[in-house]
Computed example of a mutant assay.
Amino acid sequence: MQKRIAVLVSGGGTNLQALIDAQSRGELKNGLLAAVVSSREGAFALERAAAAGIPGYVVARRSFPDNRSMTAALVSQLRALDIDLVVLAGFMHILTEEMVAAYPNAILNVHPALIPSFCGAGYYGLHVHEAALAYGVKVTGATVHFVNEEPDGGPIVLQKAVDIREGDTPEALQRRVMEEAEWVILPKAVSLFCEGRLSVDGRTVKVKNKD
C-alpha cells in the first residue's frame, strides 16, 4: 500500500518541486504526493502543486488566533485526507504538540544546516547561512530530521555536507545548500520512510537494508 504524503508549505516551494521531480523520476518508492497544504493563500507552491496535478489546500495562519488552533485545523485536514507522512518544506510556522501527537515519527523537516549547528528558534531562511558565514565554519549542509516538540530537535534521518567557499554570500550559500544537499536528501528520506526502512531508537534513526 502506497504511503500518502502531504507537503506543508508557506512560500515558493523549491523543496516541494524537488519532491515532485523525484516522484516523476520514480524515486519516491511506495510513496504518493497526495496533498500540498499552504499556510497562506497565493503561495507559489500551490501553483507548483497544480501543475503537477496534486490537490492543493489552504489552512491560512491569519484565519486563526494562535498556532495551536491552526495546528488543530491542520491535523483535522490531514486526517480527512488519510495522510501517512507529513513533510515540512519551507513551512514557516511553529506547530504545537497536537501535530506530533497525531503523527509520531511521521513528520519530516529539512533544515539548511548540519544540526545541531545553527538550528532552533530564530534559525530559518537566510539567517542560517548568515550565521554559518559569520562563525567562519568551513563546512555546512542540510539535515532531514523527524519533528518533535523541540524546534529542529527531532532525531536525524539524513545529513549531507556542503563546503563553504571563499567569497560566499548568504544567498549564494543558500542556493548551493539547496541544490547540493536539501534537494538530494529530502526525497531520499521521504522514500526511505515510505519503504518502511526507517526505525527510531531514542535519538538514533536506523536505516534498514533492502530485503
Rank of each mutant, 00 (worst) to 15 (best):
I107A: 07
P155M: 01
D84I: 07
A101F: 03
N15C: 09
L158R: 15
A18V: 00
Y124P: 03
L19R: 02
M1K: 15
G13L: 03
K160Y: 09
L88V: 06
R4S: 06
S69K: 10
D201Y: 13
L186V: 09
L126E: 14
E182Y: 06
V200S: 08
I107S: 06
A106S: 13
A189Q: 13
E41G: 07
A60K: 14
E41D: 11
T71Y: 07
L81W: 08
S117L: 13
A6E: 01
E182C: 08
E195H: 08
T169Q: 13
K208V: 01
E41Q: 11
G42R: 03
G42D: 05
R79N: 13
M92C: 07
K188N: 03
L32S: 06
S63L: 06
F64K: 03
F91Y: 15
V59L: 10
M99T: 02
G153E: 05
D82P: 06
E27V: 00
N148I: 14
L95Y: 04
V184A: 13
G26S: 07
L108Q: 04
G11C: 04
L74Q: 06
L95P: 00
E41R: 07
L192T: 12
A102E: 09
G167T: 14
D152W: 03
A34G: 00
S76I: 02
R61K: 12
A142L: 07
M70A: 10
K3C: 06
V36M: 07
L108P: 01
Y57M: 05
S38V: 02
